[in-house]
Nucleic acid binder design. Structure first.
Length: 745
DNA sequence: GACCTGCTGCGGGTTG
């Protein structure tokens, strides 16, 4: 058998591989080596967790670096997490030690002496976060040429984590700014993206090389093809005694309004009992949609272990817990001889290697297929089937329950997500969104880097053919005026822009380097020890109860000055403030799959007994309602519309109908328009379509607070609303639905 | 709208 990829590697690298005892390169590594040898274009390596992506990139890169005669820094590795960088640093060091290639790392926990050493004599490979790269540009503008003029490769790890986000746009801008360093004479970097398998890899190509996506080569590892064992269980919350109308906002996985009711709820006990009976004795990951649910479920499981006098083996893990507590959980999952399971948020979806887990559980409906897929990727030890247990807590429907709730939306959403998962589809990242806030950061950073810059120079660098190409000249000028008014920048007599007084404060604080805003939080302490942090958004009187880190506490004192909350072990309580459970916006496809689940007749084999019964129940309500024919029901005085579209269309429809002067309530799946007849509403909408829908500006003017990103507060109304509309609305989609809907009448 | 992620320079103390 021939191994052209292996044979193309430098002799020293081949020797290292042989000494490691590897029989041969993995298929993806072999193909990557061939690609590196034969071409010079950008590259995406897409594969599951254990395909050896890092080596696929760095074996050939290191081969090229050995004895190339070039000095200086040659390859950049950008990773989203410090822990990941530390992980990769050890692996790369081991390889590079024998090849005489220096490896450096740079992030917030690396000492300044190490950083200074790299700045003085740049060499080899640098592992870094986007924020630290930003810091280099902002603070060491004069050393960029010596650092980056000889750079050849940029490897982006966990590429999918950057797609469609502010941080991703920042990274694109930084890579572009490296390529534009004058001393490089327009020489491009060879960009290499490492990614989990994605639904639509063309968008990943467009991210990696925006100006020439067609030149990106994508190497995708053959799917693992391993078996998937699925189970979807439903529990039923008894109908509340107090009656209330349909609530605004989306149905959430857990509702913490009634403390006692929540604690005693038999369906919660049933759910926890199922987890306890099925998951004890092995390592599992139990994912929820919110930190509050992590606390609720993990504390109940802990209580269950206590009652049975068995060792505690369910531990909470989320971003508000202190690093010490999180690392303790991670090391128990990794190393302990005893079995441990983590109840967690997205914190354990990515990054550090915790080894394979026996199964994955998902509490509450997944709001994206991509997220579900990412979570499922943590299951399935080599060769074994992946196991996914899903749980939804539905509410019991009564005679007067509104139809949009009686159709069991959480169950439908879970079924829809599973069906799309099995079809191999998942949401593409959002590529069209404007990120004015990140553009503001990049303008300030570039001015700081160059100690002043001209407006046309900035436009040419960042917009024109750069990462913010969607921003035209007039909007860019508008943005500069906004920055001037906020005193972020000021103009000198010769037209040079420099950082203004308020801008100085911004740029000189370390928070500037991140493109995203950080939550302002209170520190939680117990027995003199920091146990985590949480935002304090609700009144929380001293003495009140709180579940945190899987235990019950009482609030001892609150110090607003030091932003500190002192706790002591308590007996009863409920999660305060860290709440939610909405998740990312639901995609059009997911809502359409919910309709298919309702209109279908076959029962998916993975449904548990109660889940199957609830689906039957929803289907018979659905067929009686006539919804399949005209997407609308008349419920007494209200007209309830079921568009079967994603959240962005639903948001837009809500604003459009509100602009007609109606009182509209969204339940996520349906829009309830109060006190109007369906026929009358159709006439009004038809007239509106004829005269033209309101503009994005007019629609978003109804939004109380349109600020979404870090620096949005300095934007003028126009840019603020444009930015909001590009992220949250879909006017074209809404118009398409309304035209169809008017025809139905 | 969920949940994540990240960060400098300097002043103080301790240790070799």
């Amino acid at each position: 058998m021939e191994h052209p990829g292996f044979d193309s590697l430098h002799e020293k690298v081949r020797r290292w591989i042989v000494r490691k005892g590897w029989d041969s390169l993995r298929p993806l590594q072999e193909r990557a080596c061939v690609e590196f040898e034969s071409g010079d274009g950008d590259l995406i390596l897409a594969a599951g967790t254990a395909a050896g992506k890092t080596e696929a990139a760095f074996l050939p890169i290191c081969s090229k670096l050995i004895g190339s005669g070039h000095e200086g820094l040659r390859a950049l590795y950008v990773g989203p997490l410090k822990a990941l960088i530390n992980d990769q640093f050890s692996r790369l060091e081991e390889l590079c030690r024998e090849l005489d290639i220096e490896v450096h790392r740079w992030h917030g926990d690396v000492s300044s002496s190490h950083k200074e050493r790299l700045l003085k004599s740049p060499s080899g490979i640098l592992l870094i976060t986007p924020e630290s790269l930003e810091a280099i540009f902002t603070l060491h503008g004069t050393r960029l040429a010596s650092l980056f003029s000889g750079l050849e490769y940029a490897v982006i790890d966990e590429l999918h984590a950057f797609l469609g986000s502010e941080r991703g746009r920042q990274l694109q801008s930084l890579l572009h700014r490296i390529e534009c360093i004058p001393e490089r004479k327009e020489r491009k970097l060879r960009r290499v993206g490492l990614s989990a398998t994605l639904g639509d890899l063309s968008l990943a190509s467009a991210f990696l090389r925006p100006e020439e996506p067609e030149r990106v080569h994508v190497l995708e590892a053959a799917g693992s093809g391993s078996e998937l064992k699925l189970q979807l269980n439903a529990t039923l919350q008894p109908a509340p005694i107090a009656k209330s109308g349909p609530k605004s906002g989306r149905a959430t996985s857990a509702d913490h309004n009634g403390e006692e009711a929540e604690e005693q709820s038999p369906d919660l006990i049933e759910l926890v009992d199922h987890l306890y009976r099925n998951l004890r004795g092995a390592n599992h990951l139990i994912f929820t949609n919110s930190r509050a649910d992590v606390e609720l479920i993990s504390s109940r499981l802990a209580l269950r272990c206590e009652e049975d006098r068995v060792p505690l083996e369910f531990l909470p893990h989320h971003g508000s817990l202190s690093r010490e507590l999180r690392e303790d959980v991670e090391s128990k999952l990794q190393n302990s001889s005893r079995p441990f399971s983590a109840v967690c948020t997205t914190t354990l979806e990515m990054g550090i290697d915790i080894g394979g887990v026996a199964s994955v559980a998902q509490i509450g409906p997944p709001s994206s297929v991509a997220g579900l897929r990412q979570r499922l990727g943590r299951s399935g030890r080599r060769g074994e089937a992946a196991i996914l247990r899903m749980y939804v807590r539905e509410k019991e429907a009564e005679v007067d329950t509104p139809l949009e709730l009686a159709l069991h939306p959480q169950l439908l959403q879970s079924i829809a997500a599973v069906e799309l998962l099995l079809e191999g589809w998942c949401e593409p990242p959002e590529a069209s969104a404007q990120h004015y806030s990140t553009l503001i950061q990049q303008i300030l950073s570039t001015i700081a880097e160059r100690s002043g810059a001209k407006a046309d120079e900035l436009f040419a660098l960042l917009c024109n053919r750069g990462p913010f190409a969607a921003v035209d000249k007039s909007r860019f000028a508008r943005l500069l005026r906004d920055l001037g008014e906020a005193d972020y920048i000021t103009q000198m007599h010769d037209g040079t822009l420099v950082v203004g007084l308020a801008g100085e404060r911004l740029v000189n604080h370390y928070e500037f380097f991140a493109a995203f805003a950080s939550r302002s939080e209170y520190e939680l302490r117990a027995d003199g020890r920091r146990i985590g942090s949480m935002p304090l958004e609700q009144p929380m009187p001293v003495g009140s109860g709180l579940i945190f880190a899987g235990r019950v506490w009482n609030v001892l004192s609150i110090e607003p000055g030091r932003r500190r909350i002192e706790l002591q072990a308590g007996r009863r309580g409920m999660p305060i403030s860290i709440r939610g459970g909405g998740g990312p916006p639901v995609h059009d496809k997911l809502r359409q799959a919910m309709l298919r689940a309702l209109a279908g007749t076959e029962r998916p084999a993975y449904l548990g007994t109660l889940a199957a019964k609830l689906l039957d129940d929803a289907r018979s309500r659905f067929s009686r309602s006539g919804l399949l024919e005209n997407s609308t029901i008349q419920a007494e005085n209200d007209c309830v519309v079921f568009p079967w579209r994603g959240d962005r269309v639903m948001n837009t429809l809500l604003l459009i109908l509100s602009s007609l002067g109606h009182n509209v309530i969204s339940s996520g799946m349906a829009l309830r328009v109060r006190n109007i007849d369906a026929e009358e509403l159709r006439v009004q909408v038809s007239n509106l379509l004829k005269q033209g829908l309101p503009s994005a500006m007019e629609l978003t003017a109804q939004v109380a607070d349109a600020r979404l990103d870090k620096h949005d507060d300095v934007l003028c109304e126009q840019l603020l609303h444009e930015g909001y509309a590009s992220r949250r609305l879909d006017i074209g989609g809404a118009e398409e639905f309304l035209s169809e809907w008017v025809e139905l009448g």
